[in-house]
Each structure stands twice: as structure tokens, then as C-alpha cells.
Amino acid sequence: MILMRKFLIAAAIAASFPVTAKAAPVKTTPTDDLNCAIWAAQVSGNSDDPEVANGFGLVMTWFIGRWEGATGKNFEDGMTPQYISSITPKMDQIGDACLTRMKDFGGRMSAWGNSLQESGH
């Protein structure tokens, strides 16, 4: 439970940082996307807050879509109990990397939304 609280607090903190400069794109693999989908599913499933659970459910879906698009496979082919068990010991590092990616994506979405508003859309 402490691990999940750490992730939830970190997610809230990451979302609150302003975007100051465009960061270099992070090189990721389909495996990174699958790992982040599993991490987000665990955060969502372990949250007592319905908004947090829903938000991380959406994050999970985003990462699943990336994985399926990159591999051409259904998520069930990758999210097996054996695979989940194999990455569980690394979940802290996986979560840190996923939070960084979420922060980057959120910042880009905010900047895009602001540019649309400024252009009258």
C-alpha cells in the first residue's frame, strides 16, 4: 500500500509541474509501453480514490493502445500472469519511468491545448 501511495503522490506532483521547455523525446520500446500499462493497471486497481482509479485506467488504456499498435498483438498476449510476475520486482523503476512519460505527454497536451485556444479554436 505504501508503494501505491508513493505512485499516487508522485503522479499528482508530476502533473503539477509547469512545462518550461520542450524535452528531447524519450526513446521507448513496446516493452516499455506494456510495462507502463501493467503499472497503471496496478495503480488503478489499488486506489481507493475513484478519480485516481479512473485516471490511471485511462493511462493504462493509452499504454495498451501504444503496445498493440507497435506489436500488432492483443494486450492479453503480453499481459500474462507470468510476465506480470516477472516485472513486479522492478515496479518502482517502471513506475518512475512511466511517470516521466506521463508528465511529458501531459505537458505536450497542455501546450497543444493552449496553442489551439490562442489561435481561436
Rank of each mutant, 00 (worst) to 15 (best):
I64P: 00
E68L: 02
I13F: 10
L58D: 10
A97H: 13
M1Y: 04
L34M: 12
T71H: 04
G113K: 07
R5N: 08
M79K: 14
R101G: 04
D96A: 15
L58T: 07
A24Q: 11
A10M: 05
I13Q: 14
R108W: 09
F105M: 06
C36L: 03
W62L: 10
C36E: 01
H121I: 12
A23T: 09
S119W: 12
I13E: 14
A53M: 04
Y83T: 02
R101V: 01
G57K: 01
P50K: 09
A11Q: 06
W67M: 01
T20C: 13
F7L: 07
A53R: 08
W39P: 04
F56Q: 07
T20G: 15
V19Y: 13
N114P: 01
M102I: 15
R66L: 06
S119T: 12
M109K: 10
S85Y: 10
I2Y: 04
N46V: 03
A21C: 08
G78R: 12
N35Q: 13
L58E: 08
F63N: 00
E68I: 02
A24S: 05
K22H: 12
V19P: 14
D104H: 03
A15K: 13
A53N: 06
T31F: 04
L8E: 14
S44L: 06
G45V: 04
Q42R: 15
P50Q: 14
I2N: 12
W39G: 04
M60H: 09
L3F: 12
I38Q: 02
W39A: 13
